[in-house]
Design a protein around this nucleic acid. Sequence first.
RNA 1: GCGCCAGUAGCUCAGUUGGAUAGAGCAUCGGAUUUCUAAUCCGGCGGUCGAGGGUUCAAGUCCUUCCUGGCGCGCCA
Length: 565
Amino acid sequence: MDHFIKNIVSLLKEKIDLPEDGIKRLIEIPPDPKMGDYAFPCYSLSKTLKKSPNVIATELSNAIHTVRPIAEIKAIGPYVNFFVEKETLSEITLKTISEERDNYGIRSAGKGKTVIVDFSSPNIAKHLAVHHLRSALIGNAIYHIYKTLGYRCVGINHLGDWGTQFGQLIVAYKKWGGENAHHAYTVTDLNDLYVKFHQEAEKDPGLEDEAREWFKKLESGDAEAKNIWQHFKDISLKEFQKIYDMLGIHFDAFVGESFYNTMVQDTVTRIKEKGITKVSEQALIVDLEPYHMPPCLLRKKDDTTLYATRDIAAAEYRKKTYDFDKMIYVVGSEQKLHFNQFFKVLELMGYNWANCCVHVDFGLMKFKDGKMSTRKGKVVLLEDLLVEAVERIKEIIEEKNPSLENKEAIARDVGIGAVIFADLCTKRSKDVVFDWDEALNFEGETGPYVQYTHARLCSILRKFGKPMTADINFGLLKEDETVILIKNLGQFPSVIMKAAEFYEPSLICNYLIDVCASLNRFYNAHRVLSDDAELTKARILLVNTTRQVIKNGLRLLGMQAPERM
RNA sequence: GCGCCAGUAGCUCAGUUGGAUAGAGCAUCGGAUUUCUAAUCCGGCGGUCGAGGGUUCAAGUCCUUCCUGGCGCGCCA
């Protein structure tokens, strides 16, 4: 907590020839609370003072004296260790949380600044599958994390709704679409048409030309082509929305690639005017050789543009429309090179905001025995996974808490939450191997563990049933399990800051696991409700603030915090 | 071939600006409940941190070479 560190720095700065900031940076938290609450390592001083760090630590600890709220100063090896008054620690932490409630953790670091989060961004006319999960969940979490830090956030779903494949689909639809005319079209039907097109195209290569023809019509605004394409888009969006609703994900804008179709020509002209383009093998490129990258292709030899061109146009448009301070692209790491190239082109175009663009990449999702691929039909549909997770939770509820009211809704919150937590729990950069059993295993460090802990706390508060107060005797919260928990609670704001700095939602997951583990240790060792009214009041405050922190943390991840389960 | 990412306990992973004894969960073995939800908690077992070399008082963390796996490398997105 900043409060104590400030006090420690002011004690140390009298005796140490280091800037305040330097001292502050060195202060750390000892691995074992028995050693102290904060520690100052003396290694870096030993060079200038030409003494061993142990000697310096001893001398320093003798030279400075305790002042409230620092209770004790002790040299242990090369460290000066500080013990704070537990009462003050508890009071500051718990009062802050119970005053700020749902706002605990909110900061104003981003006040007045705008962040764009470009995430999920699936291709239309295809199902959302489990490998689409990561971008959606990581992006959603980052959106919430930045919002908590006071940024104005704009969540954009950059739909893949443009390209030659829509020419193919139109051809297939016109030729064989009647077969499904007896019912409302679904994404499955579109998928079937897509597969059928590729089967037929092998026999009849003329189909590819027809498809190119239709895409050209689409590009030039042909009414029939546009109507059919719009129909595909409507069908897809309707299905996507159903999944986003299940996941509790909201976008501020669904703006697909098609939207930039009218702008790309101007964009290309602007790039050309900068004199950074050249023609190579009939294509228009930006040579990135000086930056040790392959060239960025802007226009194919048939004069049509590529996705890099559309990305540049989109970036220009977004800067103009939203005047963002940061733009975050949550896209798989297989596109790392693409983003490096495209950011470099923005820089070469002279946009000083180019370095405000960030590619937040993540490892890909694979099956145990190979890659996922829509072409081979080797995918697990996202909806199937979510439904299965909810079903599985329902069985567990039936077994453990059959009298629970509102089982459906709670199973939904817990099942979906389990999937969200499992996906966000590992660091972004790691590849994830999808395994049904693993994805649906809810024991140990999982979403249900966190939600269950939350539900138990709610249960205690219900049973207590009286108004709570932060006006308690903080001296009663003194056991080891209690103090560790309180210290954990106080770390929440800095964990959010760190998660934002590294674009790493997994830090929130790890933190919540920590808090819950501390809580459960406390829960097992001490009774909250007892005949001792003062002690009960104090522990109730601890229970309520812990509940609040868990709830706020889950919200950052896009998860619900059910009060019973 | 070149570039990027990953490699830590049997399995899945923490360990971010180099610091005190490398930590969790799962699995396995043993224990805790007259109790606020046992979807919990405690203990045992389990490690040449992929390998070698280097920098440093100090390296899982930084540099370097190599090994393994994944991804990417001009007209797909």
